[in-house]
């Protein structure tokens, strides 16, 4: 029943939307009905799919790089408190600056548009992974660490048998947040870039449609984005639940 509730409420909202637009005879270039949006999505799926694929590539690419970068920086910080003290504020500054404000700069400095988009998405996606993984590495039970020392564990054993499994739940929580952020980053950066050319993403489709007042198409691209975001998030949610279940032998609490 709880699973059905969000679907039911969404369907209800769509019905109200459809009814209001039809009842008040609002023109489609102001507000299209959900059914028209769906039709538009269907008819222009060919061109939208190519852009959708591009956006997916950018956001997954950025997410992958965010994992590598976030985990690597977290490991360095965990090994050295002074380095953390010196560099974490920089990471925080990068995190709190709105992406739209730095994206134009990145676009100037990074020549390839694809690389610039990747960089933008990375900038907002790496921080949750960094801070969560660092928290996980720091949260190691000190008694357990003592036990590893008592039994003369090597650095490698400590990493593999203590730090990695201990930090994994934290990393996965960061990954879930970053999966959504990387998509947001990819779209935002493309909006700012206003990319035109051979390879462009969903943001360009939305901009294009807005220039031409093709409101239904804007909505269609938006629907595709929302669906992608929801799918990506739930995908990573399920993935981390399964991983934690395998690791801890119990169903972990939901969305902790």
């Amino acid at each position: 029943m709880n699973r059905a509730l969000p679907v039911l409420s969404l369907l209800f909202l769509l019905l109200v939307w459809e009814g209001v637009v039809r009842g008040l005879a609002i023109p489609p270039y102001v507000l299209p009905t959900p059914s028209l949006v769906l039709l538009t999505l269907w008819s222009s799926f060919g061109s939208l799919a190519v852009s959708w694929w591009f956006t997916l590539k950018i956001s997954f690419g950025a997410l992958g790089l965010a994992c590598l970068g976030g985990v690597a920086i977290a490991c360095v910080f965990a090994l050295s408190r002074p380095l953390e003290a010196a560099l974490l504020p920089l990471a925080v500054m990068l995190q709190v600056t709105p992406l739209v404000a730095i994206a134009p700069l990145i676009l100037i400095y990074v020549e390839s548009t694809t690389a610039a988009l990747l960089t933008c998405a990375w900038v907002i996606a790496f921080f949750p992974i960094l801070s969560n993984t660092l928290a996980g590495l720091r949260a190691v039970d000190p008694n357990l660490a003592d036990l590893f020392r008592l039994y003369r564990a090597t650095r490698w054993q400590r990493l593999r048998l203590l730090l990695v499994p201990g930090a994994l739940p934290y990393f996965l929580a960061g990954l879930r947040i970053s999966s959504g952020l990387s998509l947001i980053g990819a779209v935002t950066a493309e909006m700012v870039a206003g990319v035109a050319g051979r390879e462009t993403g969903l943001a360009s489709r939305i901009l294009e449609a807005s220039f031409r007042s093709e409101t239904p198409k804007m909505f269609a691209a938006l629907v595709l984005l929302v669906l992608t975001g929801v799918l990506v998030y739930s995908g990573f949610n399920a993935l981390s639940r399964i991983a934690l279940w395998q690791l801890y032998g119990e169903r972990p609490k939901e969305n902790h």
Binding site: N143, Y151, R152, Q157, L161, P165, Y248
Partner: peptide
């Protein structure tokens, strides 16, 4: 002071594994 991610066997095996 057990490793929550490891089962009973692996927890007991820790000193031997190390």
């Amino acid at each position: 002071t057990l490793m929550p991610w490891a089962n009973v066997f692996d927890n007991i095996a820790l000193p031997l594994r190390l």
